[in-house]
């Protein structure tokens, strides 16, 4: 029932202000944004531009100072910041997969256990089912032969693929990725983008990703430039970003 005209994620005038001992600091200054189902949206900005804060607003990980974030997924319209912490955790676990630059796998669990965890926590799948599903997801990211290894025993790129598999565990509509290729070398990063592309094209997932790397722009179906807490430009696939480098 998600038609292209109803956005999956909608941010309306989101403001986020951090108060520090040295004074208030506005990380987001009234950001409005609509994400349609099936988009692979890139949010580009320098360090300090407010990219991660923006993601945190969508996932509800951090409170907002002003504005509203609405997510319409799985037949349910949710005002993200109106949920209490427990409901939010459950909703997020079912609706969103989150991927970070530093993988954030639990070091004491094997890969398959890491992927099973969100299913166990949200209770959408039976325990036997969830293990089966975890193995399938590992297969999707081509890591099935490492299923029973601990994260420390695989490379960074492989860990990130496991993190993606984990993000997919509860079959969420939305994937959120914060510099997912930031600590990977270029070949490995390519591999990760392949996985993302397939998820968008073959499974119809919606991915919102932030990065500081302009050269990734061609990878997205749409991108936004964020600077000092505001969206400064928006575009579909272009090479203007790279052009800027020629000064």
């Amino acid at each position: 029932m998600d038609t292209p005209s109803t956005p999956l994620v909608e941010m309306q005038d989101v403001v986020k202000v951090y108060s520090t001992a040295a004074g208030d600091f506005a990380a987001l200054r009234g950001v409005s944004l609509r994400v349609q189902p099936g988009e692979f949206l890139g949010i580009i900005g320098k360090s300090g531009a407010g990219k991660s804060t923006l993601l945190n607003m969508i996932s509800g990980v951090d409170d907002l100072t002003g504005g509203r974030v609405t997510v319409r997924a799985d037949g349910r319209e949710v005002d993200v910041h109106a949920l209490d912490e427990n409901d939010l955790a459950l909703w997020r676990g079912q609706t969103m997969g989150v991927i970070y630059q530093s993988f954030q796998l639990l070091p004491m669990l094997t890969l398959v256990e890491n992927i099973t965890l969100p299913m166990d926590l949200c209770g959408l799948y039976q325990p036997r089912q969830s293990r089966q599903r975890a193995l399938e997801l590992l297969e999707l990211v081509e890591l099935e032969e490492h299923a029973n290894k601990l994260p420390a025993f695989i490379s960074g790129g492989q860990q990130q693929r496991v993190a993606i598999a984990r993000a997919l565990a509860n079959d969420p509509a939305i994937l959120i990725a914060d510099e997912p290729t930031g600590s990977l070398d270029s070949v490995t990063a390519d591999h990760i983008f392949d996985v993302f592309r397939r998820l968008v094209e073959e499974q119809g997932k919606t991915i919102i990703m932030v990065t500081h790397d302009n050269s990734l722009i061609p990878r997205f179906t749409r991108h936004l430039q964020l600077a000092d807490g505001e969206i400064v430009s928006e575009g579909t696939l272009t090479i203007t970003g790279a052009g800027r480098r020629s000064r």
């Binding site: 951090y18 108060s19 531009a49 990219k51 991660s52 804060t53 630059q101």
Partner: peptide
């Protein structure tokens, strides 16, 4: 512990002006 606090090591990479978890003076 909130998710934010738990992963703020991550977040601190990006956000200027963010108070560290250690808190205030």
């Amino acid at each position: 512990v909130t998710v934010l606090k738990a992963i703020s090591g991550e977040a601190a990479r990006d956000e200027g002006g963010r108070p560290k978890v250690e808190g205030r003076v």
